[in-house]
């Protein structure tokens, strides 16, 4: 007997929640308990009184499962609002990465040249290393990191995606 899985599509969800202990565990636990995917998750306090946080989750699943994920999130007591940015229309997605490369000679020059092409900033440097800061869509960061592997990549840290709907209105 084989265990079957279904193909899915990628959705970016913005979730406004009470900024309280345990809320993040509740949400990630919901994803693991019900077998939903998390490709990336970011969270930070977004209100002036520290009462609310915004969680951005990139998930993947067939459309009925995406609907279920939203309904399941929506009924959690500390969840105020769930927005499917992918469904809501045009939105901006950004991610930041810090990328450390070490090397000398040609490799070092090539790393710096590529960083320039990707508009990555140098935020730290020694004689033998750089730390680049790069912002952009996840695919752009993927490509930059892949190139840096050829140029002495030591370490990479990524924030995960934050996203927001285009236009004047809140989504």
């Amino acid at each position: 007997m084989k265990i079957q899985t279904e193909a899915g599509e990628r959705h970016v969800l913005a979730i406004t929640v009470d900024n309280e202990a345990g809320v993040l565990a509740k949400i990630t636990g919901l994803f693991t308990a019900r077998g939903y995917n998390i490709e990336s998750l970011t969270v930070a306090d977004i209100s002036s009184d520290h009462a609310l946080s915004r969680i951005t989750i990139v998930t993947n699943g067939p459309p009925p499962i995406i609907d279920q994920i939203i309904a399941q999130l929506d009924r959690l007591v500390p969840v105020h609002k769930v927005t499917d940015l992918t469904d809501a229309g045009a939105h901006v997605e950004r991610e930041i990465a810090l990328v450390k490369v070490a090397g000398t000679g040609d490799k070092r020059i090539e790393a710096l040249r590529l960083a320039d092409v990707f508009r990555a900033k140098v935020v730290d440097t020694t004689i033998t290393s750089f730390i680049f800061e790069i912002t952009g869509a996840s695919e752009k960061i993927d490509r930059f990191v892949a190139l840096m592997r050829e140029c002495g990549l030591v370490e990479v840290g990524r924030t995960g995606v934050v996203a927001i709907a285009r236009g004047a209105e809140a989504a």
């Binding site: 009925p64 609907d67 279920q68 309904a71 009924r75």
Partner: peptide, 8 residues
């Protein structure tokens, strides 16, 4: 009463 029961 529970929207998540619908279409689950």
């Amino acid at each position: 009463i529970d929207r998540s029961s619908v279409n689950k």
